[in-house]
Simulated assay, not measured.
Amino acid sequence: MIHFNIPAIDQALLPALQAKVDSKTKPLGSLGKLEEIAIQLGLIQQRLQPRLQSPHLLVFAGDHGIAKEGIVNPYPQEVTLQMVHNFLQGGAAVNVFARQHNIQMKVVDAGVNGNLQPHQDLISAKIAYGTKNYREEDAMSLEDCHRAIAKGAEIVEMISQNGCNIIGFGEMGIGNTSSSALLMHYITDIPLEKCIGKGTSTSDSQYKTKVNHLKKVLFNLNGIDLKDYYLLLSKIGGFEIAQMCGGMLRAAELGMTIMVDGFISSIAALIASKLHPTLLKYCIFVHCSEEKGHQALLEYMGVQALLSLNMRLGEGSGIAVCYPIIDSACRFLNEMASFEDAGVSDTH
């Protein structure tokens, strides 16, 4: 089992950062959340002049055995593999937004049910050809769960060695909203119906079938230790979720800023934070997804999303759209004149 050492962020620099923000040529608090982000970046980096270096976005892709039934998802499982090809060809929404904002994007094959040819933007980290059907058996072995977490950590460490200090986590996997809803229910004790969303283009009738189908999974989990998050992840998780969890933990350990996308990425952050509560201070939750359970999940974790754009695409698309806001927060802290610099009377 891999171990992480994630220290609580030292708050000693907070008064100086707050004073720097307040000294800018603006009314106190007038830049709202941008001020909060600027201070968070400064505290994570322990610098009065934080810098965003080589921003990266990782899209972790993995298949789920339950998706083969075609009950919890309207799209066939093959769409995961097809979308990975689309990512690598640069044709998905997240590719467009990442190019627009000069974000380095990599696709991680965490467990796609298919073979992928080598590509400069593909990171091969396949644990298996998708998980097993957790309605019938454990999604993965405990050993494979630990392997996935370690692999996610290894990937992030490799990227950090190239100078990256801010990294985003997105995902792709037909059926992964179902896995995420089950994980949310078991960890938070929020009723399952409030955790299950429509996912990708699910009709009302398909949604009702999805809820009833997933309720049957609950009977298979009676008696397990709900505080053993590795065990729970192995029972009903996905390889992409496990690798994101490991990646986030390593990113926090390395003092990187973590950008969390939507519902599935937030589930990975939830599990990672249960293992190491200090992780959340390193995270920026970029948007609140339209997925039914996401707002409740954010509230449970005590965090706020920066944006609410009615998005529920996944892929890390929210990260690519939101990154310029984070960049703006960093830039105003470093580049905006103070009252003293500008010779403007300070009326605070």
Rank of each mutant, 00 (worst) to 15 (best):
F97V: 08
V108D: 14
S205F: 11
G255W: 04
L17W: 03
F169V: 03
S205K: 13
H276S: 11
H101A: 08
G42P: 04
D261L: 03
L182F: 02
A342N: 07
T257R: 06
P118V: 13
N176Y: 05
S124G: 10
I159A: 02
Q304R: 13
K26M: 10
T257K: 07
G170C: 04
Q49V: 13
G314P: 04
Q46E: 05
M301K: 14
N73Q: 15
V344T: 12
G343T: 05
R250E: 15
H276P: 06
N5G: 09
E36S: 14
T202I: 15
E69S: 14
D225P: 00
I127Y: 04
M105K: 01
L298P: 03
C283K: 01
A139E: 04
A67Y: 05
A252R: 09
E78P: 11
A268S: 15
D63N: 12
L270N: 02
K33M: 13
Q45R: 07
E136Y: 09
N73S: 15
S124W: 13
E253C: 00
G62R: 06
A67V: 05
T80E: 05
Q53L: 14
N73L: 11
I187C: 02
S266F: 11
S30F: 08
G163F: 03
L298T: 04
V211C: 06
D228V: 08
M140P: 00
Y75N: 08
I264T: 08
G318Q: 06
S205N: 12
C145K: 00
A92M: 13
K281V: 00
P74V: 09
V21P: 04
T278A: 13
F219R: 14
Q40H: 08
G199L: 06
K20I: 01
N73T: 15
L307T: 09
G199H: 03
T177V: 02
R99T: 14
G246Y: 03
I167E: 00
L270M: 12
I326G: 07
L41R: 00
D204Y: 12
D228L: 10
A268T: 09
V21N: 07
K24R: 14
S54M: 12
G168L: 00
N176T: 08
G91C: 09
N115P: 02
P76V: 06
V79Y: 11
Q161W: 02
S180A: 15
E290H: 13
G175C: 06
P74W: 08
D10F: 06
A342M: 10
L297I: 10
K26R: 11
A93R: 02
F332P: 09
Y230R: 14
K198C: 11
P27H: 14
H119M: 05
I71Q: 06
G62Y: 12
L17M: 01
Q77L: 12
E171W: 10
